[in-house]
Every structure is written in structure tokens, then in C-alpha cells.
């Protein structure tokens, strides 16, 4: 029986390529499950999952919640805005209070990098990182890589460009690590102010020229400009950003080959990607969303499999 080498999903950094492949193989079958007339399996019916969102999220939370329900887990939701966190409670206390109510797995998004790791060291529960600050967003990277593998057949030797706000993006770091572990080549592209200084130490190339990058790649993952994380101006105007780093149909059609377009959402139509590109047949944006549920089901199924039974014979 093959199983994951880890007990939590804290980041892609901690996974081996065999773990990633196991998650993909399992997700493929869950994708079949969620396309059945009845889209539910009973695997996690004795598991309770708490979704703790200390930072706003719509699609990730919905995707996790749907994945949990499709696995028959019991689900409780928690968002920071309506909680006692605002009353000064510490993270460990908050989580331990929730765990006292017999919760088996915690899915957490938190604005601080390393929050998921910290929690895994301090509380007794399975932790799934749903994004920790600008650090990692492992399930997004897994679903992105899975979607590429589904479209192109394999990741080995494929050229993937990540375009946009690399500096503030947890998606970028997790994607780089995941794609490299699966044998793909990664290049980042964006304004020099939005590319972290020592990015090349991760083994990726950087470029400031969008056309040149698109000519090179098989897949372009267009990231959103994260205005909410930017406390100062990194580029003169949205209009200038769009002219330099936005992709439109004319640019897409002028390329030597048909590349695949991805976007982790939410899309700023007309900024990093134009409407006709987002809706074109080269875009796999909605496949990413569908695969997100299957990937999250696979992750939680495989992590739950490693948990001891609540009752012993």
C-alpha cells in the first residue's frame, strides 16, 4: 500500500515527487466520482473537518468545503471576522478550543507565513495549509500541476511561465516547487519590482519581457496583481502594467505555438488577462476550478488514511 510520506499538508516543500504522483492518481479517480449522478463517497464519514479562515477566501473555502462534503466528512466553518480572534485569543488557544469539540482535521488559511507549520508543531490534529501569507498554497499548486498534466499528458520537460506578481504570491512559490519536483522547467516574468531578489536561487529563470517568455513556454500561468498585499506602488499604473504584462488575443495569436493559459483566480479581466483570452479554448481556467475539488478530496482522503482510528477493536 502506498501512502503519503507526510502527516500534514503544510507546503509542497515537504512533499516528495512520489507523494505528488499519488495525489494525482487519487485525484483522477475522485474527478470521476464528482462527475457521477451522485457525487458522494462515504470514506470520511467518521472525520470532522474545521475550516479556519483567518483571511478572506471564497473559492478556496468553497472548494475545500465541497471536497469535504463529497467525502462525507462533517464540516464546521470559522472565519476570523466573526470570531474571538478579534478579542485577543491566540492561534493555539483558538485551535485547541475547536479541537476539544472533537475535530480531526484542520484546514487553515492565515495571513502569517509559517502559521500552518507552527500549528502542526503545537496542536494534535491533521493540518492542511490553505495558504499562509505569501509563503505557500500547496493545494493550488497541486491542482495547477494536475491540470497541466491532464492537458499536456506529462510535466516532464515542460516549460511553464509564471507571470505577474511573484513577490506577493504564495501560488508562485508553491507552483515553482511543485512543477520542479515533477520535472518541469519554470520561468517567472513580471515587473522587476514584483520579482523577489534571489528568485534564481530556486533554480528558475527570470525575465522582464512577456513576449519573449510566452514564445518560450508551453503553459503560461497568469497571476493576479495583489493590490491588497501591496503597501506601496510597484508600478506606475494599472494601464501600464496591462500594456507590459497583460495578455490579450492579439498577443496570444501572434505566438509561434498554441500555449495553454492558466489563472488561479480571481481574474482581473482586462488587467493581467483579457476577456477573450480567459474564455478562449487555450484557457484551462475552469478546468483548474473543477480539478481543485478533486485534488482537495485526494489530499484529505490520503491524509485521513494515515490517522489512527478513533476507536480500537
Amino acid at each position: 500500500m502506498s501512502e503519503l510520506s507526510v502527516n500534514h499538508l503544510l507546503g509542497i516543500k515537504y512533499l516528495q515527487s512520489s507523494d505528488i504522483q499519488l495525489i494525482f492518481d487519487t485525484a483522477k479517480q475522485f474527478k470521476e466520482v464528482i462527475n457521477r449522478p451522485i457525487k458522494k463517497v462515504p470514506s470520511l464519514r467518521d472525520i470532522t473537518v474545521a475550516n479556519l479562515f483567518f483571511e478572506n477566501s471564497t473559492r478556496t473555502r468553497l472548494s475545500f468545503e465541497l471536497a469535504e462534503k463529497r467525502l462525507s466528512a462533517d464540516v464546521i466553518n470559522f472565519s476570523a471576522a466573526s470570531s474571538s480572534v478579534s478579542k485577543g485569543e491566540t492561534l493555539i488557544d483558538t485551535v485547541n478550543n475547536i479541537l476539544s469539540m472533537k475535530v480531526d482535521m484542520v484546514v487553515m488559511r492565515h495571513p502569517k507565513p509559517g502559521a500552518a507549520y507552527f500549528l502542526s508543531q503545537n496542536v494534535d490534529s491533521i493540518i492542511v495549509n490553505a495558504g499562509d501569507g505569501a509563503h505557500e498554497h500547496p493545494t493550488q499548486a497541486l491542482l495547477d500541476a494536475f491540470s497541466i498534466q491532464e492537458r499536456l499528458g506529462s510535466l516532464e520537460g515542460k516549460k511553464i511561465a509564471i507571470v505577474g506578481d511573484i513577490l506577493h504570491s504564495r501560488v508562485a512559490l508553491s507552483n515553482i516547487l511543485c512543477l520542479q519536483k515533477m520535472g518541469a522547467e519554470v520561468r517567472v516574468c513580471g515587473p522587476s519590482t514584483l520579482i523577489p531578489k534571489h528568485i534564481e536561487s530556486l533554480g528558475v529563470k527570470q525575465s522582464f519581457n512577456l513576449r519573449e517568455t510566452l514564445e518560450w513556454c508551453d503553459v503560461a500561468n497568469m497571476l493576479r496583481v495583489q493590490h491588497e498585499r501591496q503597501d506601496l506602488k510597484y508600478f506606475p499604473s494599472i494601464r501600464e502594467y496591462t500594456q507590459q504584462y497583460g495578455i490579450d488575443k492579439a498577443l496570444l495569436d501572434s505566438l509561434g505555438q498554441k500555449i495553454v493559459i492558466m489563472h488561479p483566480g480571481p481574474i482581473n479581466r482586462g488587467v493581467e488577462i483579457s476577456t477573450d483570452v480567459a474564455d478562449s479554448d487555450q484557457s484551462i481556467i475552469l478546468n483548474q476550478v473543477e480539478n481543485g475539488v478533486a485534488i482537495r478530496m485526494a489530499v484529505m482522503y490520503l491524509l485521513a488514511a494515515k490517522k489512527e482510528m478513533n476507536f480500537k477493536a
Binding site: M1, S2, L22, T26, Q29, A304, A305, E308, M309
Partner: peptide, 10 residues
């Protein structure tokens, strides 16, 4: 499921 030696891989 979760009683150890069951096959995980579908």
C-alpha cells in the same frame, strides 16, 4: 478504510 492494510489506490 483507516484500518491499515486496505488498498488506498483506486
Amino acid at each position: 478504510f483507516r484500518r491499515r492494510d486496505s488498498p488506498l489506490e483506486p
